[in-house]
């Protein structure tokens, strides 16, 4: 099985990797590129633990092939903090205790960041529906939703 040679940008850095045609972007990120912050919870697009952005668009990395990533710009949890400075969402998740086990957290953060880029002042309902594809089994979502709303307020300077 011939492997494809793919060039893309991940978190601003140019990367190249080899992948089989059936490898998903999630396989590539975790196994070929060692970016294990993106989690595998179901591999069927139902849990959102593998949320990443591709050319600014929020997607499940398990539902995209590595070969489809050629020439794209990918954003993962590893690229969210700015150097030593956590993204406001990351900080608010910590302050609000919006994580327990933490396995869903990278997916939630990437998804929430994507929301706030489009909708800086979301309602609670908007947050809940935008994040409906991210499953959390620990928190009941309460503190996650509060953290996102609080981060949004801070980012708006409210």
């Amino acid at each position: 099985m011939a492997k494809h040679h793919i060039a893309a940008v991940v978190n601003g850095d140019p990367v190249e990797f080899l992948c089989e045609p059936g490898d998903t972007l999630l396989d590539v990120l975790r196994d070929a590129l060692g970016l294990t912050g993106t989690k595998e919870g179901c591999s069927t697009g139902d849990c959102g633990a593998c949320s990443v952005t591709v050319d600014g668009r929020l997607v499940c990395a398990c539902l995209m092939l590595g070969v489809e990533a050629a020439g794209t710009s990918i954003g993962t949890i590893e690229g969210m903090a700015n150097g030593e400075e956590l993204h406001p969402l990351q900080r608010k998740f910590l302050e609000h205790a919006a994580l327990q086990c933490g396995i869903c957290t990278p997916g939630f953060l990437v998804a929430a960041k994507s929301l706030l880029e489009r909708s800086p002042d979301p309602t609670e309902t908007e947050v809940r529906y935008w994040l409906a594809g991210n499953l959390c089994r620990c928190t009941g979502y309460d503190k996650i939703v509060r953290a996102v709303l609080d981060a949004a307020a801070e980012m708006r300077g409210a």
């Binding site: 975790r30 294990t36 912050g37 949890i77 590893e78 994580l99 933490g102």
Partner: peptide
Amino acid sequence: TRAVRPDGVDKVTGRARFGADLA
């Protein structure tokens, strides 16, 4: 009190290593 958890930063940055993260 509501202190920030010591394992928190690793979990919001993707650094924390879960079961499938070791190679």
